[in-house]
Structure formats: C-alpha cells, structure tokens
Design a protein around this nucleic acid. Structure first.
Lengths: 242, 242
DNA sequence: AAGTGGTCTAGACCACTCT
DNA sequence: GAGTGGTCTAGACCACTTA
C-alpha cells in the first residue's frame, strides 16, 4: 500500500537481513551506490538506512560504510509494540489464548488512575491467560475506553485485538509507555495462572496512545517469573552525548 | 563542542520541556516558523523534531502540528544507555557505591560465552553493590575486555566508569542490547546484597558495543525484586505497519 | 484556501578511513 | 586522493486539518 521509497528499501533490506540472506558483518552498498541503484536521491537512501539502524539491523561507521549486525535475527523485535500473538508466532512456540472475560463495565477504581478518564467512564475489560506449552504463564488484563472501542467480543479477544483495532476500527496506534516491575502474586494470579511455587509475578503495565495522543488502552500483563523475558536494543542517541 | 544545528535545537527544546517551562499539551511553533526563527532549512528543523519525537518529548500530527507529551518529565530516561550514577542523581535519591573487587583476571568460563572473546583473553572484573537509602539492592558485575580497557582502578570504579571510558580513554560507546529476566538468587547475591526474604533477583544482562561494533563490555545487573523498575517508551515504527 | 507535517530532489561541504 | 557517511540547503509536491 505504502509507496514510500525509503520504506520499500527498508523492508527489502530488513527482510533479507532477518532471513539470513545477508549475513552479519556484511558491508552494505554505499549510499552513493544505492542512490544510483534505485535512481533516487541520497537523502532518501539515508532515511531507509536510518530506520535499519534504529531497529538494530545495521550499524553505520563514518568513512567506512554500513554493516549488518547479528542482533536482528534473534529476539525480535528488539523492543517495540508487538502483540503476544505475533510474538509467539515468530518464536514458533505452541501457544493458546484462554479468554476469561469480555465485559463492558464501569471503570474499576484501580484502573481509572491509569487510564486518566473521568470516574464515570465505562471500559471494555478483557481478561485472558496465555498458555505456552501446556502452562498458563501470562495473565493479560486489558482495559479499553469504550468511547474509542465501542464493541469487543469473545471472538475478537481470542484472536488479535490489535488487528481488529487497526483493520476494522481504523484506529492508529502510535506510541506506548511500558513500566516493568515485580509484585506479589494476587489471589487472582494464583487462580487463573499455573503459578507453581512462585510467590511473585512480573508486571508489565502498558499505556497505549492513539495517533491523536489520546490514551485509550491500559494493559496489565502479569508473567510467571520463570517465563518472563524482555529484550531491549538501545542506541546511544546523539542527544545524550555530552 | 558540537556545532550541529539540529542538536542545538533538540537540546534547547528537550531542556525546556523537561524543566516544565514548556507544559505538556503545548503546541510547538510550526516547522515553517522554526525555519524562519532559526534562519535554517526545514529539513534541519525536522531532524531536531524527529529526535524530540523519538525520545518521547513530543508527538507530531500531520496537518496539526507538534505537541509536547507529558511522559518526558517522569521516569527519565525512557529507555537508553544511562549509568546508575546518572540515574540516581536524576531521581535525587541518596545512593552509594560499594566496590568489592577491581581485578584483571583470565576471563571466567561463564563470561566468555557472553563476551565472545577467545578463551584465553583477560578481562577487568568489577563487582559493585549499589546502596540506596541504606540497603544494598543492586549487584553490578562488570567485565571489560582488557585489550580495549587496559586499566581500571578502585577509584574509577567507585565513580563513573562510563565517564572514564569516554573522556579519558576516548572510547565511543554506540549501542547495547539488554536482556531482562528473573532468576534464582545465588549465594553471592545473598552475601553481597541485603536480599531480605527474597529468593529471586531480576537480572539485566547488558551487552555494550563500541563505535566500530566490537563488543567490549558485558554487565550483569542483579536487582532485588522490590527495587527494580524499567521504563520503556516505544513508538510504532513506520517499518512495522502492514 | 491556508497552514500543517511527510516525502523527495539535486546539489554542497565536511570529517573520517583507507591505500 | 578517492571513498565513505554526516550535515545542511532551497526548493518542490503531497495528504491532511482547520476555518
């Protein structure tokens, strides 16, 4: 759909790197080469390379060239907004989603604080457990502002809610803040998960914003300790140099 | 030192936003306004705004303008490569570093796997505890390739190693991969930290690379569960849209 | 219709690396 | 000196929002 040139080049290379067609350590064609090859201006080539660089596919070295990193093949994505379903499919694990509740309710007191709505708002509450290799190890509690998301069904909740939001409701998700911490397991955790002997859970609070900056979703993802992992790729940003 | 125009504008606005001088929700001057105001080209203005956007200070909306977000003031930095010292100073907490060891040793077996050096390499090992408000809650085990970092002293280890690397040794740190997980507390954890009743620790493995892509440092940061927090700001990257 | 940000161009000069 | 990536310019056209 997108006819953006720099996005096409980005996808071209990101796929070839992720598939292993272009090996780690390989030097990419120079910016001038790519300019000639694609018949476009150098700034457009640079936009594609910058995206590749930001997302951990390549690293650019002044005077030398752009080189493929080996971070990209494992643990993808290196941070970002990706749903559980995409995630487990990428890893290739057998996974299953159990939907406990899909309800339209007045906003719970504890949630109002996170969603910054007025206290009389209503939300869609979705509670799901993620079953990986036979064990329920993640409890997802999602809350959607019902003025943004008018309807949710059990069918949607058992599939990809994000696909529904983006394709059916045409909502543009634009950014999110995640806060990760470890907390005591609640009675609910113990009831809905296979917690084994663990007394604590990793809690990932996710605040998701739309294109117009409205905070429309709050998610609490509660992970059994031994099944939690988070990978983050960080580049020293120009802004942080002294 | 840096005369880059876009960095100057970035710093100008990032500081004014972080200090609260420019409130959340405020609309920034348009790109054309900034072009005129600074007497520079629009693409340069856009570079500054893009940095602000990436780092969670602003959000740009097509046809409307650039708006200040309120994420920036709390929990800084929103992901990134920042040392414990910078971190605690920013939060304003009373903190102290206890240096247990600063040694030049043959690379431990368990570390060689992470640092990808040959098995006969030597490393500088630094083991430190971080004391926050009277309790030792973080254990940092750092390993530096000694062919990159020839010397470390207890004095350097008790201050900011990063400042030493960048200012004294002129090393350019460029990117890092973090892997966060939860593991059983070891005997060492129990000995060197004030673990209280906790049986697990949050382990943050950090793989730090230089400008020329060499992996030169591996750090294991072991946090007491209740004192761990990680914040991540993620923008839906153009590359991820379908 | 005017203003906004998003994309793209065809140049230019610079600092750096390699030989 | 030739090649590389980093910065910057002065234009252009587009899609979107607001009035």
């Amino acid at each position: 759909m997108n006819t953006n040139i720099f996005l096409q080049i980005y996808h071209d290379y990101s796929e070839r790197i992720q598939s292993g067609e272009i090996a780690a350590g390989t030097k990419l064609p120079s910016e001038n080469d790519l300019t000639r090859e694609y018949g476009i201006s150098r700034e457009t080539v640079r936009k594609a390379l910058q995206l590749l660089s930001e997302n951990g596919f390549i690293h650019k070295i002044k005077g030398k060239g752009s080189f493929v990193l080996d971070l990209g093949r494992m643990n993808f994505p290196l941070s970002g907004l990706v749903s559980f379903k995409e995630m487990s499919e990428r890893i290739g694990r057998k996974s299953q989603t159990i939907v406990y509740t899909t309800e339209h309710i007045p906003i719970p007191h504890a949630v109002a604080r996170h969603l910054e709505t007025d206290k009389h708002a209503t939300v869609w509450q979705v509670i799901r457990a993620r079953n990986i290799e036979g064990e329920k190890v993640i409890l997802d509690k999602d809350y959607f502002r019902s003025d943004v998301v008018p309807l949710l069904t059990k069918e949607i909740a058992s599939g990809s809610i994000y696909a529904y939001l983006e394709n059916e409701l045409d909502l543009q998700i634009s950014y999110a803040k995640k806060v990760i911490s470890v907390e005591d397991a609640t009675a609910e955790d113990k009831e809905l998960l296979d917690l084994k002997q663990y007394t604590h859970v990793v809690v990932v609070r996710n605040y998701v914003h739309l294109e117009d900056t409205t905070l429309f979703q709050y998610t609490e993802s509660r992970h059994r300790l031994d099944k939690f992992q988070f990978v983050d790729f960080a580049r020293r940003s120009p802004g942080e140099e002294k």
